[in-house]
Write a protein that binds this DNA or RNA. Structure first.
Lengths: 333, 333
DNA sequence: GAACGCTCTGTGAACGCTCCCAGAAACCGC
DNA sequence: GCGGTTTCTGGGAGCGTTCACAGAGCGTTC
């Protein structure tokens, strides 16, 4: 099949030096003469040597790879643009530290086992866990193995691992207050993803901002942050109370769906109904009018979580980090 | 740090058998007595053994991992829902064959080198290459190394590797003809991504369908399949010829942008202008009216490309596959 | 009862690398 | 010139597997 690959011994022979010296050059260690270093480099180029990673991993007992565990149903995986940004952000931090990012996707029970084996198999030195649910078994497995890891977000009932997150409660409270500040009288919410911390917290923030004006009849709940949830949720809210004049949607995708439903029902946005979202994803600028929303630094969440894992790997202490959010006020409310 | 992991020898000792027998049990080979098998299984559970993959890879000279190489700018990575579907489709096929999918993202030159090293380092037995450009260096590197690989799509000027693709020319021709069939007189196109085969071929199909009616002034070109490209492109077409009454957008995202531009310009869709897209992505159902478009089986493309790589790994011949597309006729034209 | 074939088990030899120790060579200060 | 330190190199040992081979045990056939 493929030609036999050159080994460190071939390089040593070609350079007229020993294995040990070649290894020192390859790993950039001290105590190599300039002369030897040049000879080795020439020999490497000559024989086309590339280090065999499996052999290295075997002896060093590490892999220089970090897993990004995504536990998310099919449909949502790429409808939610945050996941892509988190992925790229984590990739950036790891790439800088010369680690390889390995994406592990769980979308069935079989995947769940395969991923757990992968974790245990020593193919990965650490993990970034994205979009875990409350009491997620894979998160428990990670903690159980004792693998250095960090969450993006921090679901309840999960092991005591560091995380990179935003304060969803406070951010939701802030944008709801702002919406109320435009003089709306009947404000509802389309809540989503109550099986994870972000969904719960956004609802809690909404409730906090509403205070006495909170009316459970004006809150509808959907399992996922989707456009479809927003569309249906808004129709349901309009049926429940045609006088509704403000809506907080749990994400931009949800808000976009809600806006379509409002416009089809003949309501003007923002004149008749003000609407605000959450994420400041690409949805926000695509809506007409553009969405008022909360900007969350998705890429930075990924980068930060990756850095938390790297810190653990270097034996440094790593503690949770809460990143700032900003209310982006545009035309939808 | 972490406790020392149990090895195959620990299992052998616990079971009172030899390394070889344990290995045979772990790999499900023949010639193991039921008695021995049970003893080994009990011992594995007792000592908590998990196979060390690095050691295995070292001796077998394979990794049971397949790379999915995505070469795409930041912004587009998750705006294009096809990529997510391809990823999941490939994951499914590989997961079934007990291979692990490793996602390799190239979005800078440094990434490009790191990925090339990763390929060469023996960490991967094969590769699925998504969204390569014409004459993509990473594709050349893959061919150079002699790694079994397959493309999704098949850019010009790339090495002679099998691919899973759709017939973009024919599909574009078909939907353009259908658009013409609604009686449109002035039909234009918003072309995109002419640096890759899909972009080129969709333009070629459009031109073929238009025949003598083809007017280069009614074709605008943008580098990426984005909403923004559609929005701007439509405005430009309207300026060039206000009597335009039909548009073929190179993707659904582009079509969605174009539709917004038309509606802002006070044109009714489909009464004043008919518009068709390409992909049948989640964009299509989100538009009002819903988009007429070409359904391309993105998940199946990923699955098929993965299978082509697996076939090569098993020494079977693998030849290009062209998958079927279907015109989905909805309300936008 | 010898010869053969099948099933099953144990063991030495790799795989390609890093780590560590021993020792050579060079440099320093007194 | 001598002991001590620092710089540099070589090579044995070992990481945890799989693989190939040797050989034991047992049943079948002539």
């Amino acid at each position: 099949m493929r030609a036999r690959r050159a080994t460190i011994n071939d390089v040593a022979d070609a350079a007229g030096l020993s294995r040990g010296t070649v290894s020192r050059v390859v790993n950039g260690e001290k105590y190599v003469s300039a002369e030897a270093r040049m000879a080795v480099e020439a020999a490497i180029a000559q024989v086309g040597y590339v280090r065999n990673t499996a052999a290295r991993n075997l002896v060093t007992q590490e892999s220089r790879a970090i897993g990004l565990i995504i536990h998310e149903p099919h449909s949502l995986l790429f409808e939610d643009p945050n996941i892509g940004s988190i992925l790229l952000g984590a990739n950036e931090a790891l790439s800088k530290a010369d680690y390889q990012l390995v994406t592990l996707i769980i979308d069935s029970d079989r995947d769940s086992h395969r991923v757990a084996d992968h974790l245990r198999g020593g193919l990965i030195d650490g993990a970034v866990i994205v979009s875990a649910r409350a009491s997620d078994p894979i998160a428990a497995a990670v903690a159980d193995i004792g693998l250095p890891a960090a969450f993006v977000g921090h679901p309840d009932g999960t092991p005591d691992l560091p995380y990179a997150a935003i304060d969803n409660v406070e951010a939701a409270r802030a944008i709801t207050s702002r919406l109320l500040g435009t003089g709306r009288q009947r404000v509802g919410m389309i809540a989503s993803a109550l099986d994870r911390d972000s969904g719960q917290d956004r609802l809690a923030g909404f409730r906090a901002a509403m205070g006495e004006r909170y009316d459970p009849r004006l809150v509808v709940e959907y399992p996922l942050y989707t456009y479809a949830a927003g569309f249906e949720g808004m129709q349901k809210l309009l049926r429940r109370d045609p006088s509704i004049d403000g809506v907080f949607a749990a994400s931009d995708a949800v808000a976009a769906g809600a806006m379509t439903a409002l416009q089809e029902a003949g309501r003007r946005v923002p004149e008749d109904v003000g609407i605000v979202g959450f994420d400041d994803s690409s949805w926000a600028l695509r809506c007409r009018p553009q969405l008022s929303t909360v900007r969350q630094p998705a890429g930075l969440l990924g980068t930060t979580a990756a850095e938390l894992v790297l810190a653990q790997l270097m034996g440094l202490p790593s503690s949770p980090r809460v990143l700032e959010t900003v209310v982006m006020w545009r035309g939808s409310a």
